[in-house]
Design a binder for these strands. Sequence first.
DNA 1: ACGGTAGGTGTACGCCGTACACCTGTCAAG
DNA 2: CTTGACAGGTGTACGGCGTACACCTACCGT
Lengths: 238, 238
Amino acid sequence: MAEQAETLRRTPLSRDRVLRAAVALADEAGIESLSMRNLAQDLGVVPMALYKHVANKDELLDGMIDVIVSQIDPPASDTHWKDAIRRRILSAREVLRRHPWAPLAIESRSMATPAVLAYLDSVVATFKAGGFSANLAHHVMHTMGSRVLGFSQELFDASRQAGRSGATSPEPPAALPPEFAAQFPHLAEIAGAASHDDQSVVGQGCDDQFEFEFALDLLLDGIERLHQQGWTSPRRAR
Amino acid sequence: MAEQAETLRRTPLSRDRVLRAAVALADEAGIESLSMRNLAQDLGVVPMALYKHVANKDELLDGMIDVIVSQIDPPASDTHWKDAIRRRILSAREVLRRHPWAPLAIESRSMATPAVLAYLDSVVATFKAGGFSANLAHHVMHTMGSRVLGFSQELFDASRQAGRSGATSPEPPAALPPEFAAQFPHLAEIAGAASHDDQSVVGQGCDDQFEFEFALDLLLDGIERLHQQGWTSPRRAR
DNA sequence: ACGGTAGGTGTACGCCGTACACCTGTCAAG
DNA sequence: CTTGACAGGTGTACGGCGTACACCTACCGT
């Protein structure tokens, strides 16, 4: 009876509690001092205890990312696509600004986490609901790359993975696995939508160079337009 | 006379040789297996020998970045700004595609290296030569952020540094040191050019939120224009 | 001939992630 | 009431990391 006081010395640890503590630690001490040992100490536990709740540090990081990404506002379905996208992205930015280590963490993961994919999928869905063709939506997602997640991110970049684990990977981009298509239908639709006019088996992978130039020229054209009309900052109240 | 054969057993190591070897190692084995120990082994030398040529691993990474960034083509001064910028950025992209680890390495450095700053400065110079006001050039640099370096990069992002070494830094953005202004005059001019209409002492720091929305709206407007005119991919020969 | 110095060496420390064996409290089945 | 499986926390240990520090050695200007 009396010993129940310390029998459960704290709320007894769980994957969720581990992830939350990890996010908190990264927020206040910086991502570089998030070690399994420090995190365990924060939780009043021995380092190896964490491994009963996360497989390893990589999975811990993935979990932290998911915790954060799932805080982004759900899409508004009752407005024009432009407004819906704008608000969504600003929400993403707001969330990420509360966790300054997150952008880099997201970018350095070799594979996007399910929560990130779900978020991207729903952004695509918004474009499509606004009447965009899969084709245009594809390029647009590439173009927005940096901004969709509230900061910067080259999406679907095959060279990303190559950059992590060695030289350019031997196997070609490799089409998406089918369960992926089921879970993220809009992403799946878009993935093959980039002008594979020749009837190649599957229009797998996209022309990175084309996507880069597409976005670059969109920006340059917009900039030129501003320049020609003599744009300057609006006076702001500050 | 005879012993001269192994007296200098290899070309005797130098900062430059160290940096080159490091880049080569990262290229072929991946950045995650670039350790002082591995690098030393590649050079046929004991790990601590490297420290006679680079201060520490961070400085090694900075050096590697400089090696790479200095390979970007010099600016073309004989064309329209738009063409000059376009070619420059595509050159940057090409260089970085040869070193897939480099984008992440550049982004994760807490401070930009001198070579990166010099490159950015010269891009600004090109805009200004094209008749851009410092003000517009400022916003445009933010907008291009992701692309200027051939990939993605939020420039001048104060929260970047905070994200690395702890919570939001206590001191305000801190105006640029004067020797910075001397070395990178265009960057310096731009730095203060963002609508500090009220005569504050120095218009130091810029409104991140404004910059983000500026870029976002530029993209959205461009996208809307494409959408309205029913854009689809041009047929490509592949 | 000699002392300084530039550059390579060897040892050692503290941190990291985590494999693996172990202990303990809980709870369902017998 | 006993038992035994199992979920979850513990302790020890290993190999790899960056790098401080003392050392050694070959060269060079005096």
